[in-house]
Nucleic acid binder design. Structure first.
Ligand code: SF4
Ligand code: SF4
Lengths: 142, 142
DNA sequence: TCGTTATGCAATTCACGAAAGCAGAAGAAT
DNA sequence: ATTCTTCTGCTTTCGTGAATTGCATAACGA
């Protein structure tokens, strides 16, 4: 059970936008360099985020990405789901037919509890929250 | 972020021992067949469990594995850590030197909260608990 | 019209999870 | 003693999916 790079980069990326304060349109090149993320990989991630309505893209000179909403309205969960789809620890959780044992498996029951806790934590924290944490530590954009 | 097969098989394996009621010495072949787990893979997992003192091994004819303690004294967390070492969602959590940004990263802070929740859930459930859940559903050993 | 930046796929690389293999040690049964 | 069983401790292989790169194209601003 491990947090993936895509998830990490995605969060760090939007957090960079938050740190810049809301609506500034920022090119991937800037984010990638500032946070040391492979640019093409970040592009892929941000395309998902754009499709999901977390960010909006602007092409051309002085284009880039910007948040579509107030950071306080975007939960970490939303970002994670945009990046890698519905969140599940095990296939059998969303798909009971995946295993012919789902209805009497205690492990599955436990993991559903665990997953619920996970989701609740990710849903109860918004980008604005994380932004404030950073701010309190004196993090600068560049 | 995904639960691994090794983790799943490990829990299912010890749960089989619990279902057999405590101290019965059971060969891997039986567990592997009953729960449809690749036997050699399970062997590797159980070797870790044995090293960690979760189970004890007996060689020779009518040998196999048995729990060392009462299921009520073995937490799910203990089993998971025996299988895959210290539990962390991201390298930078146990090892602050992994990234030169650990002291001002809000994502890391959040993941530490998440991880704490995870660990607490896994620690607050024992094998006996899971065994009872199964029992309540009428799960039989074979 | 030119340079910049995102878009959409394809292709590639790479790490690690997952699984299999095998020689050997330990032990029980006979 | 011998034999059969079962774990032990590697080594090796396999496969999937993560992680990364590449490229041709579209949109857009200057
Ligand atoms: S055995 Fe249990 S945990 Fe594993 S796939 Fe089936 S239901 Fe899920
Ligand atoms: S950027 Fe943050 S989350 Fe990523 S490795 Fe560094 S401290 Fe950990």
């Amino acid at each position: 059970m491990q947090f993936t790079k895509a998830e990490e980069y995605g969060i760090l990326g939007v957090l960079y936008l938050v740190a810049k304060g809301g609506t500034a349109v920022t090119p991937l090149s800037e984010i990638a360099e500032a946070r040391e993320i492979p640019e093409k990989f970040l592009a892929k991630i941000f395309q998902s985020l754009a499709r999901f309505g977390i960010v909006r893209s602007y092409r051309g000179v002085r284009g880039g990405f910007a948040l579509t909403r107030n950071p306080a309205e975007i939960t970490v969960m939303a970002v994670l789901e945009a990046i890698q789809g519905p969140y599940h620890l095990l296939r059998c959780i969303p798909d009971p037919d995946h295993c012919d044992n789902t209805d009497r498996c205690a492990l599955r029951d436990l993991l559903m509890v665990v997953e619920k806790g996970l989701v609740e934590t990710f849903e109860s924290h918004t980008l604005a929250d994380l932004g404030e944490w950073e701010h309190a530590k004196g993090v600068t954009v560049i």
